[in-house]
Design a binder for these strands. Structure first.
Length: 450
DNA sequence: TCTGGGGTCCTAGGACCC
DNA sequence: TCTGGGGTCCTAGGACCC
């Protein structure tokens, strides 16, 4: 009988690998990539991990170790990673008609096996896994890990085996379906490492003696479901080989969209914070227009650092009388919302030091589902303005035209000291940026011949 | 000095209705 | 004075993921 299987294809240290593709001299160098604002480590190669550094570590805490060990450090370059991701996913589509792009660096694909001839089939799939590795490597230069199993959760678990193979410098591809050491793997996987089980439930499960993936697989899914919730029940079943999460290949309609950033430094000046917020509104609205969506509920957030002594989190939201993706309309509303949540001083009279602003667009709908009033001429006219704005920004680069509340773009500023001082104070720190090799002409790689 | 950004799903509890 | 029971919808917040 034919059985359906799932392959998980997971790019190894994806952001680091993207940087390496265009800098072959870094082939054997340890690399790490930082989050926006050069805040935390978000991607690292195994050698960096062996220095005791893990994902999420604040950069300033490990900067010295990095320098000492000659780690190549990069600011995140999402233009490059997004484009490389698209190439990887295109390549993967050769192997199955049913592909789910799960994240920027992961995809699940559906495969089939004949369970009447298990040993031959396992060998065939093992070869296929390696073939996927080689094909993606050849087509994109990105190394992937491939794990094949009965369910997504088991494929995730099998992916730990591929990490081990990688450490041993072998091809990181494994057929976890009928894998000889499957039981051992399950017994040595801590419960907190199972996909879908985080700190919260990990601790709870351990308190009732479920310490490993194997322990949970041995449990009664119904009992788990009753004691905790349906999500854990499904995870339990998936570990037992029962499919609860099928491939979701359709492009799921986005439900919300967030645009937020930490500032390059602390701010108290409401004018500058509002400029940052307006920029997020403009970027978000542009993204909505690209995806042909409109938002029904807008909220804004401003906050001081989590670790600040004098902290505050301000948020305000509003249901729009008419869903929209018009930057001008949304900017005005955002400015009103900002007034509602901006507080300058605390009760002791000390200034709050804000470090982050953001806009959240909720209740998204396709823009053609909005019924326009017969006499809604203004609306049509506004859309033309937005179309034009998008075209100009596309042709001449982002921020060719901005809304006044975003502040004056740098290129239009004079060189006076005062102007320099104000110059996009809130823009983020990116001190280790690589070129956008694949998406911007003037940043294209130059090769000298001869 | 310095701690990311962007998502989804589920659940409990309140509001409201009959 | 007595003060039901069942249902739906919405929302905030928790938990998790990459």
């Amino acid at each position: 009988m034919k059985v359906k299987l799932f392959a998980l294809i997971d790019c190894s240290s994806f952001y680091c690998s993207c940087e390496r593709v265009f800098r072959p001299e870094l082939k054997d160098r340890s690399i790490c990539v930082l989050s926006n604002n050069d805040g935390c480590v978000i991607s690292l190669t195994p050698e960096v991990k062996s220095l005791g550094i893990s994902i999420g570590t604040p950069f300033f805490k490990v900067k010295d170790i990095m320098v000492k060990n000659k780690v190549a450090v990069f600011s995140s370059n999402y233009c490059l990673y997004g484009d490389m991701s698209r190439r990887v996913m295109q390549t993967i589509k050769k192997f199955s008609d049913n592909v789910e792009v799960y994240s920027i660096d992961e995809a699940f694909i559906e495969l089939e096996a004949d369970d009447e001839d298990i040993e031959d089939e396992r060998i065939r799939l093992q070869k296929l896994a390696k073939d996927i590795y080689h094909t993606v490597m050849k087509g994109t230069g990105i190394p992937v890990r491939v794990s094949i199993a009965e369910t997504k959760t088991l494929a995730k678990l099998g992916s730990d085996v591929t990490k081990k193979l990688l450490r041993e410098k072998k091809i990181p591809a494994v057929c976890f379906w009928n894998y000889p050491d499957k039981l051992l793997s399950m017994k040595t996987t801590p419960i907190g490492d199972v996909w879908g089980i985080g700190r919260g439930f990990g601790d709870k499960l351990q308190s009732i003696g479920i310490n490993t993936a194997h322990n949970l697989a041995e449990a009664d899914a119904k009992v788990i479901g009753k004691k905790y919730n349906i999500v854990l029940q499904k995870t339990t079943l998936e570990l037992q080989g029962v499919v609860c999460n099928p491939i979701e290949s359709g492009h799921a309609q986005r439900k919300s969209l967030v645009r937020s950033r930490s500032f390059g430094l602390k701010l108290n000046d409401s004018k500058l914070i509002l400029q940052a917020l307006s920029t997020h509104i403009a970027r978000g609205a542009e993204k909505l227009r690209q995806e042909k969506l409109v938002t029904g509920v807008l909220s804004v957030e401003i906050s001081t650092g989590r670790h600040s002594q004098n902290k505050i989190f301000g948020t305000a939201s509003i249901e729009l009388s008419k869903p929209t993706n018009d930057t001008l309309v949304l900017s005005k509303i955002a400015a009103d919302l900002f007034k509602k949540c901006y507080v300058k001083k605390n009760q002791k009279g000390e200034d709050y030091q804000y470090v982050k602003a953001g806009a959240v667009f909720h209740d998204l709908k396709k823009d053609d589902t909005i019924t326009h009033s017969f006499f809604d001429f203004i609306n049509t006219e506004k859309n033309e303005i937005m179309d034009t704005l998008d075209k100009i920004n596309k042709k001449f680069g982002n921020n060719a035209i901005v809304v006044a509340s975003q502040g004056t773009p740098d290129r239009l500023r004079g060189n006076s000291a005062a102007n320099k001082k104000e110059s996009t104070k809130w823009s983020m720190k990116r001190n280790h940026m690589s070129p956008r090799y694949t998406t911007v002409w003037k940043e294209l790689m130059k090769v000298r011949i001869g």
